[in-house]
Amino acid sequence: MTDQASSVVDIRADYMAQVRRKRMMDGIILVVFIALMVTGFMIADDRNAGGFWEGLHRIFDFPKEVLSEAIEKIAELPANLWKYLPSLIETINIAAASTLLGAMLGMLLSLLSTRGMAKWPRLIPLFRRIMDVMRAVPEIVIALVLIFIMGGGPVPAMIAIAFHTSGALGKLFSEVNENASLKPVEGLQSVGASWAQRMWLGVIPQVAPNYLSYALLRFEINIRASAILGFVGAGGIGYELRNAMSWGKGQYDDAMAIFLLLFLTIVAVDQLSSVVRERLTHGKTQKVAS
């Protein structure tokens, strides 16, 4: 009896000690984290051209300036929107083409780097590393180099985004592939299908909805990327935005029109892709249920 009671006390003491230790660890982590955030903020603030506290009250000055000018010239807004529509289409085309090309290359790379599907199983690590490197390259690096070689325009941006996209999608696709059943592949192999046929007929139909879902998500990201690359000289709406910004006061109605177009496009694609992705994953569960 007393023995039991003492063991209960022991257990409780042990538990409380553990809890205390965990709380202390949590506390230390929290303190370190806060210290990192504060010192990081101070360093960044120090390195910035303008300080945070001096700039804080000016944060709305620029939007106000742009808005007031845009409201003054509200009558020109439809004409401006129309004027920048072609460059918006170019930006969307850059995003779409690079997503398409990147998805195709990513599909190939993912199939080559999935166990059980790879054409050359020994080279799986190589293709994985290739995807890692492609994923790690920020678009702007390739875009700037290509702009130097081929001059400004949409093609450097398209290649740059497609390069990064194939790495990023390749990784996601190979995760999808790992969950695909290998039975159709084996079946096709038994009737003498080539590698391409096995993949196209045995794997792709299984994974297509998931591929499409990821590609749509990527398309959304790539629209933003292509707008940013335009800003460094790769055509599209980003380029127009930089021009409108550099003209400065008096052209803010143009800038406003571009802001609006970009904002509406991003929101529209965002909403559209989430609806379609919802349907893609939802449709699949229905099929399984029936």
């Binding site: 903020f41 360093i43 960044a44 603030d45 390195r47 910035n48 051209a49 303008g50 300080g51 945070f52 700039g55 804080l56 000016r58 944060i59 000055d61 620029f62 939007p63 933003r224 707008a227 940013i228 800003f231 980003g238 935005l241 910004m245 802001f259 970009l262 904002f263 991003i266």
Partner: peptide, 19 residues
């Protein structure tokens, strides 16, 4: 409102830099 536009707006207030 993309990071690009936020960058433009914020750099007007805080100037260029990591912050």
């Amino acid at each position: 409102v993309d990071a690009l536009i936020w960058t433009i707006i914020l750099s007007r207030a805080f100037g260029p830099g990591p912050l």
